[in-house]
């Protein structure tokens, strides 16, 4: 939102050094818990602009934030799935008796 290069012209060459974790963010949005994945994509979108602007520390901070939100999203999704499976197994056992 704040970065000035919507077209992503040049910074592909410097991408490997500050990962924007976009793939993880997309996977989290599609398979886990929506809000966290979207927040991760927003942080991911800041990384390349900040690298292009020469703000490496800022880019690394945005990269870390994107990673953190992916982990939160994946964690929430995983906890929910595990709880659901446990509860439905217990429920099946309980209704069986």
């Amino acid at each position: 939102m704040s970065s000035p290069n919507p077209m992503q012209g040049g910074p592909m060459g410097s991408r490997p050094n500050v990962p924007n974790h976009l793939v993880w963010a997309i996977l989290c949005t599609l398979f886990c818990c929506l809000p966290g994945g979207i927040v991760a994509i927003i942080y991911a979108s800041k990384v390349d602009g900040l690298v292009a602007a020469g703000d490496v520390a800022g880019a690394q901070a945005a990269s870390d934030s994107a990673k953190m939100w992916c982990m939160i999203s994946a964690g929430v999704g995983a906890v929910f799935a595990i709880l659901w499976v446990c509860l439905s197994v217990f429920g099946a056992i309980a209704s069986h008796h």
């Binding site: 992503q8 924007n20 997309i26 599609l30 979207i38 994509i41 991911a44 979108s45 990384v47 390349d48």
Partner: peptide, 12 residues
């Protein structure tokens, strides 16, 4: 495809 903004717009 590597543009996060594209994904943001498409997903939202």
């Amino acid at each position: 495809l590597a543009n996060p903004r594209l994904w943001l717009v498409v997903l939202l």
